[in-house]
Amino acid sequence: KLLSSIEQACDICRLKKLKCSKEKPKCAKCLKNNWECRYSPKTKRSPLTRAHLTEVESRLERLE
């Protein structure tokens, strides 16, 4: 599967780190437990900047 097509777990399953069936409108866990089942939009991760990478590398060197 391509990364862009990976389905996201519902908010509660993601928060509780449960295996989500990803069914809509309610996944199996939410249906069974009568929880409100919501699927928040995916958040875009910002790409690493060179400055951040350099900072992490220098912190790693100090720890070694």
Rank of each mutant, 00 (worst) to 15 (best):
K17V: 04
D11Q: 11
I12Q: 10
K16M: 01
E61P: 00
C13R: 05
T49L: 05
N33P: 00
T54V: 05
L63S: 02
R62W: 05
K29L: 08
R59W: 01
Q8A: 11
N33G: 12
S5M: 10
T49V: 08
S46L: 01
A9Y: 03
T54Y: 08
L15H: 10
A28C: 10
K42E: 05
K29N: 05
C27R: 07
E55Y: 13
E23M: 13
W35D: 10
H52V: 00
S5T: 08
P25R: 02
I12A: 10
K17Y: 04
K19H: 06
S4H: 10
C10Y: 04
R38N: 15
A51I: 12
L15M: 12
N33E: 09
D11K: 03
K1T: 15
K22P: 07
R45S: 03
W35S: 13
A51Q: 12
N34W: 04
K19N: 07
T54G: 10
W35E: 08
I6S: 11
H52R: 06
R59L: 06
K24P: 07
S40R: 04
S40I: 03
K29Y: 05
K19I: 04
P25C: 00
T49C: 06
L2A: 13
L18I: 11
N33M: 08
R50H: 00
R45K: 05
L2R: 11
R38E: 15
E23A: 13
N33L: 12
K32V: 11
K17D: 03
R62V: 15
L48Y: 12
Q8D: 05
C30F: 06
S5H: 11
K26W: 15
L31A: 14
P25N: 02
S21L: 03
L3T: 11
R14A: 08
C30Y: 06
C10P: 00
S58P: 03
K22E: 05
T54H: 04
E7A: 07
S5D: 15
I12Y: 14
L48S: 05
S5I: 10
E57S: 07
L31G: 14
E61F: 13
L2P: 14
R38S: 12
R14Q: 04
L48H: 04
A9C: 01
P41N: 05
K1M: 15
D11E: 00
E61K: 09
L53D: 00
K26F: 15
E23H: 14
I12D: 11
K32G: 10
E55D: 13
K29W: 00
L2H: 14
C20G: 06
C27P: 06
E7M: 09
K22S: 05
R62Q: 13
C13Q: 00
W35I: 14
V56W: 01
P25D: 03
K29G: 02
V56K: 03
W35P: 07
C27S: 08
R50T: 05
A51D: 05
S40K: 03
E7C: 11
K19E: 04
K17H: 09
E7F: 13
S4F: 13
S46K: 04
R14G: 02
L60M: 12
K26H: 15
Q8Y: 11
P41I: 03
A9V: 10
S5R: 11
H52D: 05
K1E: 02
S5Y: 10
N34Y: 14
L60F: 06
L3M: 12
L15K: 09
S5A: 10
E36R: 13
K44A: 15
N34V: 13
T54C: 08
S4P: 11
K26Q: 15
R59T: 03
L3F: 13
L15E: 11
Y39P: 00
R62F: 14
K44P: 15
K17A: 06
I12K: 09
S58T: 11
R45A: 03
K19Q: 06
E55W: 13
K32F: 09
A51E: 04
L15A: 11
K29H: 01
C37D: 08
C10E: 13
K44Y: 08
E64F: 03
K32C: 09
K42L: 12
E7D: 11
N33I: 01
S4W: 09
E23N: 14
N34S: 12
L18H: 09
K24S: 15
Y39Q: 07
E61N: 10
K16L: 02
K16Q: 01
D11N: 03
K24M: 15
T43W: 02
W35K: 12
S5G: 09
S58I: 14
H52T: 03
R38M: 15
L3R: 09
P47S: 04
R59S: 06
